[in-house]
Amino acid sequence: MLAYILRRLLYALPILVGVNLITFALFFVVNTPDDMARMQLGIKRVTPEAIEKWKVERGYDKPLLWNEKAAGAGRLSQTIFYQKSLRMFVGDFGRADDGRDIAGEIKGRMGPSLAIALPVFVLGLFVTVSFALLLVFFRATYLDFAGVVLCVAMMSVSSLFYIIGGQYLVSKAWHLVPISGYVGGLDATKFLVLPVVIGIVSGIGASTRWYRTIFLEEIHRDYVRTARAKGLSELAVLFRHVLGNAMIPILTGVVVVIPSLFMGSLLTESFFGIPGLGSYTIEAINAQDFAVVRAMVFIGSLLYIVGLIATDISYTLVDPRVRLE
């Protein structure tokens, strides 16, 4: 088991390096730092001096991969690749354009992001799996048909409208909760209810339908027929046999996103003014703050890989075939 996890971790390393190279190429090779400076400073009225100053301020004045001028290890370390890309492996993300330390900013913003993403994830999973089981229990009836139609309709609505509509109805028309904002501690609840509910509702359509398909696939298997032939009740069949086996494909899609919950939700956070990582990212995108975007890409990939490993480990928990071989 330990060897298995170790092996997975070793597999993850080249992937992370790959991500690093892709982002490096994207940010520094496709466009030179000069291009970025020109972009930031305005294309027309820009002097070479201003560009040089902009680059020095941000540490982009070094060569990309190999520093001829430096000596010893400095030839490698006094480069953009080392300073801006490799340093991320040790948690050094540098500074944002506004001069703040990115790592510190990320630490502070994780909490609010999780405060929304975690309830959305847990409650959402519970709600959608329950709905899907309900539909499967009433399979091939009008209730099932209506449920599927509703799911398709719900997944055809853009998430933007769930947020806009929810904010308008609940906050503006009915004045139930504040439209946006955030405070720390328990008082946050009143700010969190609406985004969490919207987060759950907007996911119902696609997820319910997806789980329903998985359940239906399982329900036609031979062992389910065996379970019925044993005289088990439909509920026992559904919960013990179908759900137990359906966990395997469900986990594939679910566990992998758990670590990424830290990243928060771009849309929800920006609409509701939640100071989380999602809104941080969106602000950075709008301000074209490449340092922050680069850091978020790196962290996002890292969390995804952690998710992949967690998925593999979770298989061993639900699937004896993986655990014991």
Partner: peptide
């Protein structure tokens, strides 16, 4: 269901797929 459990029982052609793979 009472009959299925107690009165009549059935075994199937494919033992490989007729048992639940994730239960002991």
């Amino acid at each position: 269901r009472e009959v299925r459990g107690g009165g009549m029982a059935m075994i199937f052609q494919e033992p490989a797929t007729s048992l639940n793979p994730v239960m002991t």
